[in-house]
């Protein structure tokens, strides 16, 4: 079994239901996110468009975080999930330096690294990840990539014919198991959009100065 995730960006409407469900399910502390939905506005008024991109751990097949972790706190489960053992983590932040997707954070409560685990505890009980359940438009598709009959495999096959299945930063050679359908450079490449002061909705903080307990 090799579990994977797919987000159909044509369906996502940026409601952040998945973000909230993840926070609640995994008791993610304030100032930390396992999953977030990024809004990017494209174009010049009146020809503008808003894009939504849910961002979470890519559960790479060749995960840089697993390779750099000095104590194997980050490890693979048999189903392909890149899991984290918070009791073993020493908080060196090597994984945060290695992850090309910025998907790992330092939990300010436990002072250990943390990230999306595809809700491994729910999966172990044959339940879907919380974000999949919460999505009102079924934009999140989760399942076994080794099973050609699974919904995710079928979805990938259907859209691959149109050349529409992407991963983030394929050049990093990490072989992500998180896919997107309908994504463009603006969705997937952080350098394709600017982060400028004065453009943020609701939130004036763009960067965290301090990481974890330091």
């Amino acid at each position: 079994m090799k579990l994977g995730f797919l987000v159909d960006l044509n369906l996502c409407m940026g409601c952040k239901g998945c973000e909230v469900a993840c926070k609640v399910e995994n008791q993610v502390p304030l100032h930390s996110w396992r999953l977030r939905v990024k809004y990017v506005d494209v174009g010049v008024y009146p020809e503008t468009k808003r894009t939504y991109t849910p961002l979470r751990c890519n559960h790479c097949e060749d995960a840089p975080c697993e390779r750099i972790c000095p104590v194997s706190a980050l490890h693979y489960l048999e189903n392909g999930i890149v899991n984290i053992d918070k009791e073993r983590c020493i908080g060196c932040a090597g994984c945060m330096m290695a992850c090309p997707y910025g998907a790992i954070y330092m939990d300010p409560v436990t002072n250990t690294a943390d990230k999306c685990t595809f809700c491994a505890h729910r999966v172990a009980s044959s339940m879907m990840p919380a974000c999949v359940v919460a999505c009102p438009v079924e934009a999140n598709i989760f399942g076994d990539l080794d099973d050609p009959a699974s919904q995710i495999s079928q979805y990938i096959m259907r859209h691959q014919k149109e050349g529409g299945v992407q991963v983030r930063k394929p050049e990093k050679n990490t072989h992500p198991k998180h896919f997107y359908v309908g994504g463009g450079q603006v969705h997937l490449n952080p350098l394709a959009s600017k982060r400028e002061e004065g453009y943020n909705l609701f939130n004036k903080i763009t960067h965290l100065d301090h990481i974890g307990g330091h």
């Binding site: 100032h31 996110w33 977030r36 939905v37 990024k38 809004y39 990017v40 506005d41 494209v42 174009g43 010049v44 020809e47 808003r50 932040a93 945060m96 330096m97 910025g102 954070y105 330092m106 450079q185 603006v186 490449n189 350098l191 394709a192 959009s193 600017k194 982060r195 400028e196 453009y199 943020n200 909705l201 609701f202 939130n203 903080i205 763009t206 960067h207 965290l208 100065d209 990481i211």
Partner: peptide, 24 residues
Amino acid sequence: MVEHTVAATNAIVTLDVPIPQVIW
């Protein structure tokens, strides 16, 4: 990136969480 150089595709992040800056 074309999103930077062409005004018609000017792409700006308008909503996101604060991202970590200096880790080490």
